[in-house]
Amino acid sequence: MLTLECPYCGVKAEETELQPGGEAHLKRYGPGSTDEEFDGYMFSRKNPKGVHFERWRHAYGCGKWFLAARCTATLEVFGTYPAQTSEPPAELQAKIKAKRPNWEGYK
């Protein structure tokens, strides 16, 4: 059972306190988008074996959504950060790159 630190309230939250929200940093495609764009937004997920960016809500805590970078194979957590951002913080990206030199970036 994972523990993730909520970047808002600083609590090291256990998985039972959290609600998972799937892949992070998706771009929303609404009316006017092509079928391919919408399909990609709605259904296509990376599902990597390795570094993954994902959404979690501290549902039974402060109620805030936050983002986490985690290795899906080893469950190593590289860091958590607030959801109000369109890309992972630069220092977190650098940290992951140092630990996983073959990582291809979050995009």
């Binding site: 809500r57 549902a59 959801a83 109000q84």
Partner: peptide, 13 residues
């Protein structure tokens, strides 16, 4: 309520 918060916090913050 969670759904509303999701959109407010993560998309239209």
């Amino acid at each position: 309520h969670g759904w509303m918060e999701d959109w407010l916090q993560c998309e239209w913050w």
